[in-house]
């Protein structure tokens, strides 16, 4: 049995179900968020869906880890798959440890060799790929967004059962949640306009927002721009931020540090705009423009405005 842990049935979840299909085993889904999507899980290949009622946000990752530990044990799961994000980063290693298994993070491919899964993961900020096998099962894997083909709807059905979130001790308690920064979701955007150190100031990000609005896209930022305080942390694109897969990724004033490139490998085309013709970003770009960032942004805004 392969257990897929999900919070909804969005694109990342369907990719996780697609990845689960590669392991050639029966698939069960644990839904820790949106219960309405349980029925639908069957259409994407799951034979069983477990819907958890209750509060999973109030205790950090504790309740989710406890619920998944219990369910994975009960099902005798060989593997637990999770979409890789800021939530599962803290869940996967702890879940693996409680199950006596192995966590494999940042997985980008799965192959079966003699019936045994070989996991390919990214390392060194995306500069290296590593094939690993696990010494102890179950494997708890986090899957990089954009790396796996999403499961197709098959019209199958899953048996749905409901469970309660387990009670956990109060060592960690949610006190407050700050609203996310405004703007479209980076993970789902078709166009991303991203700014880096080359923008030079926070004001330039307001222009980027206008440009993103005209393109129907989202604003991203490099680690350098976030560290400079020009853009909020949840806008950061890269290995340690959001891993994105838009049709077009505008990298404006971004030099192309490998940790940033590791987050944009899924983009169909990167458009690099930089004053430095030798910036490493050009090696990863489909289109390149050597130009002052502000001139580029302003000219693009003007042309898009006049077109509408």
């Amino acid at each position: 049995m392969i257990l897929v842990a999900l919070w909804d049935l969005g694109p990342a979840a369907r990719e996780a179900l697609g990845a689960a299909g590669r392991l050639g085993d029966e698939i069960a889904v644990a839904l820790l968020g949106d219960p309405a999507s349980a029925e639908e899980a069957g259409a994407y290949g799951a034979t069983q869906a477990f819907v958890f009622d209750g509060d999973f946000a109030g205790s950090g990752g504790e309740a989710a880890i406890a619920a998944l530990t219990e369910l994975a044990r009960e099902l005798g799961a060989r593997a637990v798959l999770l979409p890789r994000d800021d939530r599962t980063a803290e869940i996967a290693p702890r879940l693996a440890e409680r199950l006596g298994g192995t966590a494999v993070t940042q997985v980008v491919a799965i192959e079966l060799t003699d019936g045994r899964p070989v996991w390919t993961r990214s390392a060194y900020g995306g500069k290296a790929l590593v094939e690993v096998t696990a010494a102890a099962e179950p494997v708890v894997a986090t899957l990089t967004r954009g790396a796996f083909a999403p499961a197709e709807a098959t019209g199958g059905t899953a048996t749905v059962s409901t469970r309660s979130a387990p009670a956990v001790d109060g060592a960690v308690e949610l006190l407050e949640r700050e609203a996310p920064s405004t703007g479209a979701s980076l993970e789902d955007a078709k166009v991303i306009v991203s700014g880096g150190a080359g923008l030079g100031a926070a004001e330039a990000f307001r222009e980027l927002e206008e440009l993103a609005g005209l393109l129907g896209g989202a604003v991203g930022a490099s680690l350098a721009a976030v560290d400079a305080g020009w853009a909020p942390a949840d806008r950061q694109v890269g290995l340690t931020g959001k891993v994105v897969s838009p049709d077009v990724y505008f990298a404006i004033g971004i030099s192309g540090a490998s940790q940033h490139l590791a987050g944009i490998g899924g983009a169909k085309a990167v458009v690099a705009v930089n004053t430095d013709a030798d910036a490493p970003i050009f090696a990863s770009a489909r289109l390149g423009v050597v130009m002052d960032c502000h001139t580029f942004i302003r000219s693009m805004i003007e042309q898009l405005r006049s077109a509408t």
Binding site: A103, A128, T133, A283
Partner: peptide, 16 residues
């Protein structure tokens, strides 16, 4: 826990 089978540096294929 982890056995490394192979490590390599992927080619960057894109042409700018």
């Amino acid at each position: 826990r982890l056995e490394i089978v192979r490590t390599w540096a992927p080619e960057i294929e894109r042409q700018c």
